[in-house]
Design a protein around this nucleic acid. Structure first.
Lengths: 226, 226
DNA sequence: TAAAAAATATGACATTTGTCATATAAATGC
DNA sequence: GCATTTATATGACAAATGTCATATTTTTTA
């Protein structure tokens, strides 16, 4: 079993507040998991009795809308924690988590997290700040969905993917979303998303090679996103 | 100066966890304010060094979108606290708060809140749960904005206003929003909002008397909202 | 590797929504 | 109480977006 003391990703999450002792203890409680691309980590409505720490890979958090379509609420990656909100609320998770690529995650049982919570003030403060950050992000996102056009949202989302997850050696976006997923992130029909991508391509803003998307004119995309 | 020990609204917020002693102390630190309809409590980007406790009245939390329009992110009412997120994040507030009716609010300085935070575990847990609840609500809202039509959102919003804030003796919605505000809540143009209200009226779902809105057929509205 | 399935792409068209113009009603200031 | 401003309402039209059909490409599976 791998040791949390030696795990680098903990430095990027609330767990960075844990002491050496706490980390040693954590190593014994946590379980490690490999998750293949497309596999479900947890599903909306499930009781997840703890949190996941993402060691490697990216996943999408989705919510089923009443009309039956999935909406991607957020992407979560290496170093982040999953399931904090529902653990604190003592409710089932309100979102599903699905791997977008092969992942390595560790599961930390609730009892363990709660004991850190009680004893380590810095840890609980970190968790709170993360959730507050998520809330602010959600507010921003909400306003964008309400006030921006689909074209603006697509441009913005492409830039977000570029800035947050970086690019491959060939300069294409590192996180590969299907057109369908991209559409469910910006809140539009798949066909509209495909059409706008074609438009962007014709305008020389991006390049499309199969599933790969390459941003060619970032400053023009920024103008488009307003 | 009014006494927090005798204030009933504290029972409805995280402050319910405070002890008698803490409440006595709070009474000395807090300041009471009367805010007239339309007045600004705080503005996006401002540094608010503490939180507001709403003793009476309702306000809107808005965010300016890049295109210059205000979007109403949330309505907040009697018993709720304002400004918790930004206090914890140690950031300026990301939303503006404007009174929708005459209000009574108390301001509690940050130092005071933080000392409760450190010493009273139940209080900090309450705050966390509130923020987690807000986050879940924001996720739901996001999916609605992304996936539902304007008509569905209007129906849903009318029902929300009805269920959350109740109605007057004449059965009209208690919270009176202008068409403009209603539109900026559901994320559409004012004209579209007005037009749909007219449609709803013609369908016998609602009644319009000046600014007043009266829900006549709640079950049909529910079907419309999906 | 061939066949089947799924994803991407595009056209044609309907529907929804936004914009601008203008009319009417209500609220506000003097 | 009247004039002025602001809010509500509606028509006409344009633009954005969704839906359905279908072709093409890519991926998966047997």
């Amino acid at each position: 079993m791998s040791k949390c003391e030696q795990c680098i990703v903990r430095e990027f999450s609330s767990l960075k507040a844990l002491s050496k002792n706490e980390l040693v203890h954590l190593s014994d409680c946590k379980t490690s998991h490999t998750i293949k691309k497309g596999e479900v980590i947890f599903e909306e409505g499930e009781n997840v009795n703890g949190i996941f720490c993402i060691k490697d890979g990216v996943c999408k958090l989705t919510k089923l809308s009443p009309n039956g379509k999935d909406h991607i609420v957020k992407l979560v990656t290496k170093g982040e924690l999953l399931g904090q909100r529902s653990m604190i609320s003592e409710e089932p998770v309100n979102l599903s988590a699905v791997a977008l690529e092969d992942m390595e995650v560790c599961f930390i049982p609730k009892s363990e997290v709660m004991s850190f919570f009680d004893k380590n003030n810095q840890f609980s403060m970190n968790v709170m700040k993360t959730i507050c950050g998520d809330l602010k992000e959600a507010d921003d996102h909400m306003v964008n969905l309400a006030q921006k056009t689909v074209k603006e949202r697509l441009a913005e989302t492409l830039l977000y993917l570029h800035d947050t997850f970086g690019k491959n050696e060939d300069n294409s976006l590192k996180v590969q979303l299907s057109r369908d997923e991209l559409a469910s992130m910006i809140g539009t029909a798949t066909e509209s998303c495909i059409r706008l991508l074609s438009d962007f391509k014709k305008l020389g803003l991006i390049e499309l090679t199969g599933k790969k998307i390459l941003l060619k004119d970032i400053s023009k995309l920024k103008k488009l996103a307003e």
